[in-house]
Design a protein around this nucleic acid. Sequence first.
DNA 1: GCCGTTTTCGGCCCGACTGTTTTCAGTCG
Length: 568
Amino acid sequence: MVMFESNIQKHNISFDYFYPVTNKEIATHFNLLAKVMELHDENQFKIRSYANASINLKKLDTPLASMTLDELQGLKGVGEAIADKIQSLVNTGKIPTLVKYLAKTPPGVVEMLKINGLGPKKVALLWKEYGFESPGELLYACNENRLVELKGFGLKSQESIAQAIEFLQSAEGKYIHSKIEAQGESIIKLIREKHPDSNTEITGEWRRGIQELQKLELITTCTKADLEIVFSEEDFQWKKDVSSHEYAGLWKEYLPAYIFHSDKPGWNKNLYNTTGPQPFIKKYHWKADLDNEKELFKEYKLPYLSPELRDIEKIDEKSVSFVNSLIEAKDIRGTIHNHSTYSDGIHSLEEMADAAKKSGYEYFVITDHSQSSVLARGLKPDELHKQWHEIDKLNEKHTEFKILKGIECDILSHGDLDYDEDILKQFDLIIASIHIAFQMDIEKATSRMIKAIENPYTNIIGHPTGRLILSREGYPLNFPKIIDACRENQVAIELNANPLRLDIDYSILNQCIDKGVFIAINPDAHNRTALQDTKYGIKAARKGLLPKELCLNTLSARDLLRFCRKNI
DNA sequence: GCCGTTTTCGGCCCGACTGTTTTCAGTCG
């Protein structure tokens, strides 16, 4: 294992660090380089080159780490200097230029770049003119009402900056579900290489589908001595033995990890107990003669409660009767909300559809961006006709599989959709989503969205709140009103399964279920692999007790089309 | 720093929204 020491790690910007470096990680380094150079007032065009490189590299399909210098220079926006920096990052884990700029920037100032609504220009002003060197100092000034006095800032910015910093601080030390999963799987892979007969799994809150986590919890049949062979000192800093059954440490310098030891005979019991939560395993405690979890629930005369259901505070008759009807992966018949190279996706329409077919889906709904989303290369009417033509041709090749013509249509500022009626009426399915004008009070945001719901061509409201877990708060919405409007207008609500979004939150689902509003579990896939993100949505939906009858994706293609035409 | 010619250097590049301005800079997707 090659040690990968990061430029960013030292500045406490949480990030995945595994060798070989992924394209996304490389892109993030260039993005940071552009921002930090802007703090230091460097050449605008040079900065733009790095920023553009970041965007292009992120979207690239082939791994940059495996490319030669010549191949790198052949890429759009990559010349001698950037190719050299990519290779340096791949080989040494560092970009010397970035190291140089970070060395002359206080870490807290780099941290300030993460405050939503503040860009490099404002951060530079706050740092150089007004002496702020961390988000904490800035928040203090906001609370003391001192920011309003500064030129370039007013009451509204002071309020929104304070709110953004508080959000940033509340996210500190937390990790999203999929990140914990990726780190856990990397550790498991390392362990298996050295100890192929051992058993290791991620347990605890991750196993219960918790969306914001503070630590990684693993259970393994390996002993500490076994693990010490697996991890180098750089990989894992052992903290202390918490007990004879538990080890703790910091994985890759920053992620707190707890590793529980289990002997092989006690595996099922220990997996159950470490899964938690405490009140649950106390109430339904493991009995001596039990062999597995299924037997345990039988013992308590309960249906099998999968881990994501164990946080439900009250297991009553109602929830128990629900359990067997809850949505499961096998019930999903089609994938809705997917992008292609027609807009901002990485793979072509055909590649995406083929991947969906291989995953066992009966249909694939393509929903590229609409014309207003210029940077996402939203489709103009003539491009739509081209896409529809291609879909017709592809559909001729399939008998048991269908591609549907959809669009992720922008909801404009006042609630209108992004095409004229003569275009809108030609789609099979329309997801209406907000991508612009996030800053709204609850009344405005709600009435804007209701206007979109009342549009006769809207079928699904996409990522309803616009939240990004741990990095952006969603806009406020009056959900009872939104849900009523969806019911009246036969519009489904999306549970966007992108692990960064998981929007709407599962805690809202009970209101939707009560009103009989359909939920669409959609991957929002921008590449083939992301089609699998649906699994995160299913976990969340199950936490919210979504029955399969109310999941839009369980419909056949034919019934989905009937739903969209609003005649079922 | 990259690109594409005008082949050796000048031009790079979307549009809406917001807040703080008083005509626009900064941010975002």
